[in-house]
Design a protein around this nucleic acid. Sequence first.
DNA 1: CTGAAAGCGCTTACAG
DNA 2: CTGAAAGCGCTTACAG
Lengths: 344, 344
Amino acid sequence: MKPATLKEIAQKLNISVSTASKALKDYPDVSKKTKALVHELAKTLNYKPNSLAVNLRNKETKTIGLIVPEVVHHFFSSVIKGIISQAEKKGYLVIILQSNESYKLEKKQLNLLMQQRVDGILISLANGTADFMHLNEIVAQDKPLVMFDKIAKLVRCSKVIIDDRKAAYDATQHLIDIGCKKIAHFRGALLPQNSIDRFLGYKKALLDNQMDYDPSLVYICECGDKSFEEGKTNALQLLEDHTDVDGIFINTDLVAIGALTAFQEKGIQVPNDIAVVGFSNWFMSSVISPSLTTINQPGFLMGKTAFKQLYKEIKSKKKNKPIALKEIILQTDLIQRASTTLSS
Amino acid sequence: MKPATLKEIAQKLNISVSTASKALKDYPDVSKKTKALVHELAKTLNYKPNSLAVNLRNKETKTIGLIVPEVVHHFFSSVIKGIISQAEKKGYLVIILQSNESYKLEKKQLNLLMQQRVDGILISLANGTADFMHLNEIVAQDKPLVMFDKIAKLVRCSKVIIDDRKAAYDATQHLIDIGCKKIAHFRGALLPQNSIDRFLGYKKALLDNQMDYDPSLVYICECGDKSFEEGKTNALQLLEDHTDVDGIFINTDLVAIGALTAFQEKGIQVPNDIAVVGFSNWFMSSVISPSLTTINQPGFLMGKTAFKQLYKEIKSKKKNKPIALKEIILQTDLIQRASTTLSS
DNA sequence: CTGAAAGCGCTTACAG
DNA sequence: CTGAAAGCGCTTACAG
């Protein structure tokens, strides 16, 4: 059973396709009688306008593209949820692609989306992305583009982010406030702006408090599939390298949980021997023992906000209005839990 | 800068649109010279065929729809990853929708996808879905449809599942094998086939081993956002209701981890006082302490397999070949870990 | 109030 | 080897 078309409806009713079309869209210049007939037949035939034809005609697809580095990831899946729930409210569908942290794939996928004529694009960059030509091309072609979380500062488009530097500063300051004297940092990969900013926030907090910044206290983790294991490995390495570290600020919760596990195995008391702060407020963090102090990173809200901004830009463009680019910074807060609550 | 069209290319080269089109597609009946010219200009203009027009003409969209109950969920996000990575290989894009476990939304979304003229649909049902008219309609309209994980047995379409009953049987048998005499079950919601099947597998294992089936040992959890809390609550309730339970088979890992946490707080030793088996092999399950014995449920593979089957059906339909419906059952295995490994 | 016409951007069977 | 024509399924400005 092929889907019904306007033509069929028109033929059965002995009217023209134009009239049928206008009747369905409740144009004022069609008689009530005709409208009723058309609507009725449309219903019985289960008529649904072919969106390909509609879109070709109207030059919009009511579809947006979304590229994330990784789908199996609590933060990104929260963002996705925020985006698709908001998009659905506005009648938009979302095509989701995953760059696997690869620059090459990201570029290819951007091309796919342009070819598909999506009305706008939402993207969080791959760790491997160091040049931004592919993004600038999108902007040059006047396609609404909003970056979130992992952004490129220099690309002229709207951005939805948190203030990673401030959040990391707060996390580090918190460790200092509870009395830590020698604070390590497990940072993320070298390229992404977030992990740079979090590192800088850590460093600045130390310096503002007249504490030494010691590069040997900074450990790197890629934060991919192996986050948990990286946390364990780094923690064990840290114990070998330094005997007097009493606090760690860790780039992301899953790595932090790995570290907590290593400490537990080694008989290191958290927080009394070493206090730990994570980042992102993964739902398991409140649940493990000791529960993890962390920075709350609002994924769902970020997705929602990014879509809203993109939607505004799509609307503006449609009306040929100038597009006001925005950099929206979402609030983060420190959530203190057992991993930094000293018992004495 | 508007995207280039075939017409523009044809005009600049003083040839017809037909020839330009054929040149780009390397039809044999176009001269080498023309082909070269067209390809070159296409490149400099950054020409990308408008897929809306192509699709309208070819009556296919190279897009499939995917409906899952929940995106922020380790199992489903693994499935999503499996689907989109496989789809990309075959040149398909994926529109993802989330039913939020709601029958009403699921129905609406199916309509959206039909209107969008996706080439096929992949779906895992909402817990709230008890009637299947909306699915039968899809089938009646000859749209390729593959259900996975949460399926409706009676709908005439392909399915990719695990053998929940057998897996649950294995899990329960394992508890019996290590010596458990009174085994409780935390089951999922009442409607979904999975949770019914897992319950039946549990029951059958008991009966096959001449153990009593006692309904008061079966607790229900909705397995939504609150899985962890439900696990805790149920575990505490169980301790109040029964003093002599020595094993539990739990519908899903996150609930099981909640239960483990409750037991730890109450000083109950796992596995020596109570042994615990979960379901799904969530990545945290190997990591917590005690690590959780569980059934491995292959999400990524399930997504990949479901797409492959859908792809076959799309191809068959295109060639007007009959479609061979399949029920594909993926392998599960019991992974034994500390939560059922008695120390004595 | 109704309908013929043009057009969105392609593809392809057909004629020359 | 090239191009005119028809058509995919719609929408809308225009004529009547």
